[in-house]
Each structure stands twice: as structure tokens, then as C-alpha cells.
Amino acid sequence: MTATAEDFVSDPVIIVDHVTKRFLKRNSHSFKEAFVGWVKGRKVRADSFPALEDMSIQIGRGEAVAFLGLNGSGKSTTLKLISGVLEPDAGQVLVKGRVAGLIEVGAGFHPELSGRENVYLNAAILGMSKKETEERFDEIVAFSEIGEFIDQEVKHYSSGMFMRLAFAVAIHVEFDILLVDEVLSVGDAPFKKKCYDKIDELMAAGKTMVLVSHDAGTVKKLCSRGIVISRGVKVFDGPIAEATAMLGK
């Protein structure tokens, strides 16, 4: 049997143990068709497809790991299972430590609230107390570089502004594991460098990071290990250079 990276994990903080996740694929293409079918007594067919099939992964404390693969491969589904957003249909996901997630740009933000109000809202969702948020508020705003726009409703923010504020909140939470899904692809070069420097600082402090990205340069810079997923199945687990090479990057 060929050894994989997970065979050498000495202190796992994330264990994905023989996990399967399926989603429904409805064959009724519109509400009108579904309604007509219901009136006529026809059942709406709903087939399922496997987003993940018997997935097993272990990630150790202090590791920086990238999930790689084509669109629809199961990368983001795996990340959402680790975050607790999704539950597996079979198998189990075990996580040791406090998790901060940047799964979607602006997730947890209310468009009708200001940036200031959303800092408190998002921080609370991530497990911070009001007192903790107050103590770190100035640092969060300074890192985000939102400045004069902090009291503007976030529905007027660009995707880049969303990302800056969301990232700034997440990295100022007390966490052990950081989950990041593509959001670092948004933003200009100086802010990206600032994010990379902050992640390097967090990794040096022993934090664990799991990253999903199509940007080979980003994953090579931030991660030492790559896990390639294809059609819901893990096909490679090893050095990041070999993982990106499998995808022709």
C-alpha cells in the first residue's frame, strides 16, 4: 500500500473519516412543471449524486493544506463539512479546536447594516463576545482599510471591500483552524500581500489552515501539502508542487 501524507500526521486536529455526501438532483426543470406534475398526480423525480464518496483525510496541527481540483470536484463541500455547515450522510468529521471560516465572501454580513454593525454581527457568529470585539474593533478596521466607509451600509460595498472586512474579522478571532475558500482571489496586490503576511504570522504561531483555491501561485506560497479531489474522490495527497502539477499548474 502506498503511503500518503495523512499516514504521517502526528497530531490530527481535523479527521474526515470515510465520509460520503450526496445531493439531490431534481429532474423537474421549473416551478411550473413541478406544479403541473403535482396537479396531475405525477411525482417529481429527484435523483441523488455523490459530491463526496468515502473520503478520508487527516490534517495535523500547524499544517497549511490546499484542496485542489476542477469545479464540482468536491473541494468546497469538504470544507463545508469541516466547518459544520454541512453534515455527512455517512462517516464522520471530527474537529479539535476553534474554527474560523471564510467560506464565501460576505457570508454572515447583512446588506442593510453598516460595516461597523456587521463587524459585531460577524464576530458574534464566529464566537467573539461583544467585549472582545470592542477591544479589537480598531485593529479590525485598520487591517481592512475600509476607513471612512465603515459606517456605510455594506450593500454598497464592492466584493473587494466585503472580502477585506470579512477577512479582517476572521483573523482577529481567537481560533485554532482557519478555513478559506477562494476569497483571497479578491483584492489588489498590496492587500493580498498583507493577507499572506498575516497568514504566515498565524502559521508561525501554530495555527492550522485549510485553503481552497484555483490560484496555483497562492497555494504554492501558503501551503506545503496539497490534496487533489476529482469527482468526489481523493486522488492525490502529498507535496503541494506535485499536487499542482497534477492539474497542469
Rank of each mutant, 00 (worst) to 15 (best):
R164Y: 14
R61Q: 14
S83G: 11
A216G: 03
G69H: 06
R45C: 05
R26Q: 15
K40Y: 14
I229T: 01
L184D: 02
E242N: 13
G37F: 11
F67M: 01
F8P: 00
G160T: 05
I14Q: 01
T208Q: 02
G187P: 06
H29S: 08
H29V: 12
H110Y: 13
R116P: 11
I240Y: 10
K234Y: 08
M128K: 07
A46M: 11
M246Y: 08
S230Y: 12
V169K: 05
R45W: 15
S129A: 08
F175R: 00
G115N: 10
A5N: 07
I227Q: 01
A51E: 04
F67A: 00
A166P: 06
R22E: 14
G106F: 15
L211F: 13
L247Q: 05
M246W: 08
A142V: 01
V210K: 00
Y196G: 00
E134F: 09
D197L: 06
G41H: 08
S83H: 10
T133P: 10
K43A: 13
T133C: 11
M128I: 08
V141S: 10
A170P: 08
T133W: 12
G84Y: 15
A66D: 00
L184M: 08
F167T: 00
K194Q: 03
L52Y: 12
V44C: 05
H214C: 03
V119E: 05
I140L: 07
S213A: 10
V173A: 10
E174S: 15
S30T: 12
S185H: 06
D54K: 06
G187F: 10
V235L: 05
V183L: 03
D17M: 10
F23T: 03
P12G: 09
A34N: 05
A124K: 03
A243N: 01
E63V: 06
H18C: 04
H18P: 02
I14V: 13
P190N: 05
S56Q: 07
G187E: 01
K234L: 10
R26E: 15
T218N: 01
D11T: 12
E63A: 11
I229H: 03
F31K: 04
L247R: 05
F8K: 01
V233W: 05
L94H: 15
I199Q: 01
K21M: 06
F167P: 04
Y120Q: 02
M209G: 02
M203H: 03
W38Q: 02
M203C: 02
I177C: 04
A216K: 00
H156N: 11
V39Y: 11
A123Y: 14
C195Q: 04
G72M: 07
A216Y: 05
G84A: 12
G217V: 04
P111W: 14
K75H: 12
G115H: 12
K221I: 00
G60W: 09
R42E: 09
L81I: 09
H18I: 02
Y196A: 00
